[in-house]
Each structure stands twice: as C-alpha cells, then as structure tokens.
Design a protein around this nucleic acid. Structure first.
Length: 562
RNA sequence: GGGACGAUAGCUCAACCGGAUAGAGCAUUGGUCUUCUAAACCAAAGGUUGUGGGUUCGAUUCCCACUCGUCUCACCA
C-alpha cells in the first residue's frame, strides 16, 4: 500500500498536470513479475498529448526519479516500477512477525453487529450436502467480518415449524414405532417422511391429515407439542455432532418456531400502514411499484407463511441486535423471494431494509438433478465427512505412519478438504456433487494448503523455533520475492473478500501462497548455515502464520504435522 | 411467455477498475526422493473465451441481438 503511494509520488513529480487520485487509479499490478511490481500505462495520455504512447512512456521515464526503487524502466507503452526487494521484503516480514494474529486485520466495521442467517437445517431431516454450503459460507463470512472489525452474530434459523411437521406427525401416527425412532431418530423419521410423501399421490387424504396435525400443533395440542419437542431434540443432538466436526458454533438457534407467537405484530403493522390487501381470500402486499409480484403474508385459511415469519424475524433481529448489516446465506433459488421480502420491509418504511444483504449460493445437485429430501435422493453431509476422514487416515498411514496424533490430524485434513472444496470457487457457481472431487487431497485442495503449512512448521521445528524479536530484517533472496509480494497482499484480499462476501478469494489466495512457498521450498534449501539463514527462516515463519490465518478464515484447521 | 443467473483447454474453475503472450488444478505424456515431509516440484501438450454485431488505441471483461443451460414467476420453505 505504501509502495503504491511511492509510485504515485514518483509519477506526480513527472506529471504535474494530473491529480494523484487519477494516477493511483491508472496504476496497475502486472501479472508477470518480469514487468515489475507496479506499472503505469500511457495509452490514455496519447490523445491529449498527441503522441504515441511508446514515446510518452520514454519521455516520462526520463523525468521520474528512480531513487527508492530498484529500477524504473520502459516497456513499450508501459512504465514499469521495480520495488527495492531487500527493503520492502524485510518490512513485510517484520510487520507480520511483530503481530501475526492481527496481520491482515482492519477496523472497517467499528464493531458493528452483523447478523448472519446461516446453516438453518430442517428438523427431522438429515443434514444434506446442500446445508454444508450455507454453513461453511456463513461461517467464513463471519470470520471475514471479525477480521474487518465487525461483530458477527451467527444465527441458525432452524426449520423447526411448518406443514411438513404435520405430515411427519401423521406419518408417525400411522406407521411410527417409538423404539425404532429412538434407535436412529433422523433416518427413521426421514423414512416416514419420504413414505408419506411418496404415497400421497395414491392417498390424497394424507395431505389433509398433515394439515390437520399442523393445525393441532399450532393450536397447542398436547400430543402434537410433545412429538414436536421430541423430534426437535433428537434432531439437534445429531446436528451438534456435525457442527462439532465442522467446528462451527452459533450465537442463536432461534428458528421458525421461535417466531411463531410473534407474528401478530407484523400483521397489525401491515394493516395499520394499509398495506395488507385481500385477494382470493388470502392476505397480500402489493409490490407492483417494485416490479415484483405481490407477497403473500396470510393464507386463505388465515395461517401464516415463510414470508410472515421472515418479516417478523427481520424486525426482531433489528431490535435485538441493532445490526449494521443483516446477511442471509441462502440458496440462489430464493432470490426472487428475498427481493420481495426486502421490498415489503421497504414498503413498511423500515429504512434499514437496505442493510439486508442476500448472500446467494449456487444449487448443489446430484447427477445433474436437484437434491430433494422428499424424494430421498440426498447425500448426507455426515457420511461425506466420515468418508473423507477415513481416506485422510489411510493417507497418513501410508505417508507418515509414525505421526503421533494421527486420528486428530486425519479429522482436520478430511474435514478441511470438504470445507475447502466448497469454498474455493465462487459461491454462486452451481456444483454437481461428486465424492471423488470432494475428498481429493492433491492439487488445488485444502490439504495442499495444509501440507505447505505443515512443511513450514517442520522446518521451524528443526531450526529450534527461532525468535525474531527485535531483529532488523532485509530480504536478499530474489527467489523469495513472489512470496513476499503475496504476503503483502493479504490485507487487501481480506478486505475485498469481506466487501464482496466472497470466501473464495481467501481460498484462492491461500492456494497461491502455498504454491509460491512449495516452489521456493523445492528450489532453495532453507536450513543451511549462511548469513541469510535467519531471514529465510523469518520468511518461512511468516508464510506459516499467514497460511494458518487464511485457513482459519475459511474454518479449516492447520495441523503442524501431517 | 416474463425475470434472474450463467456459457473460457477433454473435465472443474481463474483472470483485481477494460490493458502486456487468456492462467491454474485434474486427466494425459515424460522427468525429479542417500540432502528441510514426493499430499510436493519441473516440463510437454491442450484455446476462434457459445454465435453475430457494436463501443474503444485496446474487449473474456462494457452495450445490443441470438442460441443453449439452470433457477424462478401467490396459498412449500
């Protein structure tokens, strides 16, 4: 950052007619290191100066003071600036080593609360791979918020209410067996649920039974309530196992049921503001001024919908947390719906509606088809995690059989692979689930990054964990320059990832840094006793810190040995 | 039919604000472990960036049209 200012200053002296902001805007970072560290293209000056860009570049470079730079040279229409590698490199390393935990952090958020609606699995259904996306994306965004000075509030908006419970209860009453459910709650309940759905075509009365049971639940029927509590408890127990594996926790588990008795207010508010209209017996809010279809907030039988609960939830969260932002990490198929939700809130006069951001992610499919719990074609997240851990354990047995805490590391690597796989690409991309891709440990994967980190730690152990306190560092190894450059870009990468709610930028950064390091490692011996040994070790230590930090943002562990 | 999003190497994906020869990984072919962990490294090969126009000194990137794909368009969530 300061380095860019240095370039701006040098150019400003040669081009007094242009203001610094314009110059800063035009300066770019060449993709190829041979074109220097910063470059200034002169095309845009051709028109005003009536000269060829190449000529402008040549004339300009003569006026630029190259002191402070390694060199400044012309390459066609570009002026390329090469930084003083020894000095800049040393500064970057010293900055990281002085305060590793805060490297890359900023205070853009000034402590403002950011509620993040994430994970939100449905009770009485197994957590599928689809829920992984919302969980790990939400978790990574929460970490990005922390890193940029916000205070994230992770909310697991459990799907613990709705007509599907009525159906489930009806199914349980017909075919259920208490012992069977106790033995394996989720899968058994899931089986009942699939059964009643598949047989509903032949037995239309099942749908009515489901509605009746849900009505009972809403009216506080004792048996319905007892079943609901039981199903919910068993489901949560199972979910907690998965969250523990993923190492994700939540600040609130207030789900749909929590808002069940709080919806009157929003209905009343809509009435007071004359926004509630009747149409075909149902209650709707007209949104034609937003170019959207009307939002239904009351069914014709007077019962509520998802929309009703979400409006209530939004208002509750604003009051409870006074959020600076409210994020919803939800599948892309709900985009239209969230447009309506925001529009209704705006229509109600809540100016904070614009603080709501919908963080959509691409649908996960199986063999090209949408996964459907009702049809039973889902891949269970727990199975995938366990498979991955098992495979990681095998790899360790082959490659590092004497590793002391092998089981613990296998879990970190196996789970890390799954999480990283889900986060490395743009969250909006659709993904077709393929186990062999998810549990891959080579190439652009989580384990690749973890491995680079473990190698770095291994070297530091062998070097006797050197201390860098108060050491004045310069970096003389030219081969280390790509690494240092990458390290120096961590903060801006974090900021960009946070601003775009895009964890994949951190994933790509971690891969690039791991690759830089692995290349260096393959070509340079670090543990040789010469006068540059300490600065090489400082480099290794800095890489280790930053890799670990980047992985931590993604929610991936960085074992010291693997 | 309306809307949203997308189309880049055989496959999965990159490409910051419009910039230098469009880059990685996987798969394929070949090379590198008596030296810090080979979950790694090096190399080869792989492209009319869906099609056709336009804007620009310059377009994968911006605009228009078209083709194809996914999602979505009130009593599910």
């Amino acid at each position: 950052m300061d380095e860019k200012q240095q370039v701006v200053a040098a150019l400003a002296a040669a081009l007094p007619d242009l203001d610094q902001a314009t110059l800063a805007e035009k300066i770019e970072r060449p993709k190829d290191n041979k074109n220097g560290d910063y470059a200034f293209p002169t095309f845009f000056l051709a028109k005003t100066l009536h000269k060829a860009p190449q000529l402008i570049a040549q004339e300009l470079v003569a006026k630029v003071d190259p002191s402070g730079f390694e060199k400044v040279e012309v390459a066609g229409p570009y002026i390329n600036f090469f930084l003083d590698k020894a000095k800049v490199g040393g500064n970057v390393l010293m900055e990281i080593l002085a305060d590793p935990a805060n490297y890359g952090s900023s205070d853009l958020g000034h402590g403002g609360n950011v509620t993040i609606d994430m994970s939100s699995p449905n009770i009485a259904k197994p957590m599928g791979m689809g829920h992984l996306r919302s969980t790990v994306i939400g978790n990574a965004i929460a970490n990005l918020m922390t890193k940029t000075g916000y205070h994230p509030v992770k909310v697991n908006h459990l799907g613990d209410w709705g007509t599907q419970f009525g159906k489930l209860m009806a199914a349980y009453k017909m075919w259920g067996n208490e012992e069977e459910v106790k033995a394996d709650p989720i899968n058994t309940l899931q089986r009942y649920y699939v059964k009643i759905n598949t047989e509903a075509d032949e037995h239309p009365e099942y749908a009515d039974m489901g509605r009746e049971w849900f009505k009972k639940l809403e009216d506080g029927d004792e048996e319905a309530y007892r079943l609901w509590v039981w199903f919910r408890k068993e489901s949560l127990k199972r979910f907690m196992k998965i969250y523990k594996l993923l190492d994700v926790d939540f600040d609130s588990y207030n789900g749909e049921a929590f808002y069940n008795d709080k919806m009157d207010e929003i209905i009343q508010l809509l009435k007071d503001k004359h926004l509630l209209q009747e149409s075909r017996g149902a209650g709707i809010v007209d949104l034609s001024k937003y170019d959207l279809n009307p939002a239904m907030v009351l069914k014709s039988d007077g019962s509520t919908l998802y929309m009703t609960r979400d409006l209530t939830t939004a208002l509750f969260r604003k009051r409870m947390y006074g959020f600076a932002k409210s994020l919803y990490v939800v599948g892309a198929e709900q985009e239209y719906y969230f447009g309506q939700l925001k529009a209704v809130l705006t229509e109600m006069g809540f100016e904070w509606a614009k603080q709501i951001h919908y963080i959509k992610f691409g649908l996960m499919s199986l063999n090209g088809k949408k996964m459907s719990t009702r049809k039973g074609n889902v891949v269970q997240l727990e199975d995938v995690l366990n498979d991955s851990i098992k495979m990681a354990r095998q790899q360790i047995a082959e490659k590092n059989p004497t590793l002391a805490n092998a089981d613990e590391v296998a879990e970190q690597v196996g789970v890390g692979a799954v999480i990283f796989h889900d986060l490395k690409n743009d969250r909006r991309n659709r993904v077709d689930f393929r186990l062999e891709d998810v549990v891959k440990f080579e190439g652009e994967t989580g384990p690749y990054v973890q491995y680079a980190h473990a190698r770095a730690e291994s070297i530091l152990r062998k070097a006797g964990k050197p201390s860098f306190d108060g050491v004045e560092l310069a970096l003389h190894d030219e081969k280390a320059w790509p690494i240092v450059k990458r390290l120096s870009q961590y903060g801006e990468t974090v900021e960009r990832a946070a601003a775009n709610y895009d964890p994949s930028l951190i994933g790509k950064y971690a891969l690039a840094l791991a690759k830089d390091f692995n290349q260096y490692y393959a070509h340079t011996r670090i543990l040789v006793d010469d006068d540059q040994k300490l600065e090489r070790l400082a480099l290794v230590q800095a890489v280790s810190y930053v890799l670990k930090s980047a992985l931590a943002i993604l929610g991936v562990k960085a074992p010291d040995e693997m």
